[in-house]
Nucleic acid binder design. Structure first.
Length: 91
DNA sequence: TATCTGACGATAG
DNA sequence: CCTATCGCCAGAT
């Protein structure tokens, strides 16, 4: 595990059921603003060890290619999903 | 060291 | 709303 990957995992583990963050936000919290793409790459290979479903794209879109599974998990935490978009509390 | 790749992001059309 | 581009980062070759 690289320091970056460890930091990303740590950030995701602080999320509570119902919370959602974008790839960019996670990258910034992990100390690497702009590394959103790297976050996605990390989750793609380590989604089994972290709550990846609490991460969406900057526009609120669900993970491309995993929309069905993603929507299922989000709804399980009370997060509203419409036409492939996660609706964050307050909007 | 050079290139390619990908669960990204912002902008323009 | 969708595609095309360009910029960005970390990892793999």
């Amino acid at each position: 595990m690289t320091a970056f990957e460890d930091a990303v995992a740590a950030v995701l583990l602080t999320l509570r059921p119902g919370d959602v963050m974008t790839y960019g936000e996670v990258a910034a919290e992990a100390g690497r603003p702009g590394a959103a793409r790297a976050v996605g790459s990390f989750l793609a290979h380590n989604g089994g060890d972290v709550p990846w479903w609490r991460v969406v794209t900057s526009t609120g879109r669900l993970v491309p290619g995993h929309e069905t599974e993603h929507a299922r998990r989000l709804r399980a935490e009370g997060i509203t999903v419409r036409r492939g978009y996660a609706v964050r509390a307050g909007r």
